[in-house]
Amino acid sequence: MSLDHAAVRHIARLARLAIADDQLESLRSDLERVLHLFDDLAAANVNHLAPLAHPHDQTLALRDDIVSEDDRSAQLLALAATAQGGYFLVPKVIE
């Protein structure tokens, strides 16, 4: 698997990670080496197998429909770098 700069920029954009231009090449070659490691997956004989997403054959436990939470807005808003009037704030978003 080879990777070009555009692909690295695209992934970084999907992941919302700012990349400086001078980082790009070292990151590219880094990622390419990691992706080479994955070539090994193609060697495994797995065509007959179903994917395994969870280690045990577990059933999902459900909870009853009960309101168990109180207002914690003061505590939660205090964790944010910027909050006002009960809202978290972000730079203006235009829809």
Partner: peptide, 26 residues
């Protein structure tokens, strides 16, 4: 994060993530 994003992204999911989950079962 970049490797993981790549492995899940359109066009690579089957070859990487899905295949890895099958190897996991193996």
């Amino acid at each position: 994060i970049l490797v993981g994003t790549y492995a899940l992204s359109a066009g690579y999911y089957d070859a990487y993530y899905l295949r890895a989950q099958k190897v996991r079962r193996l």
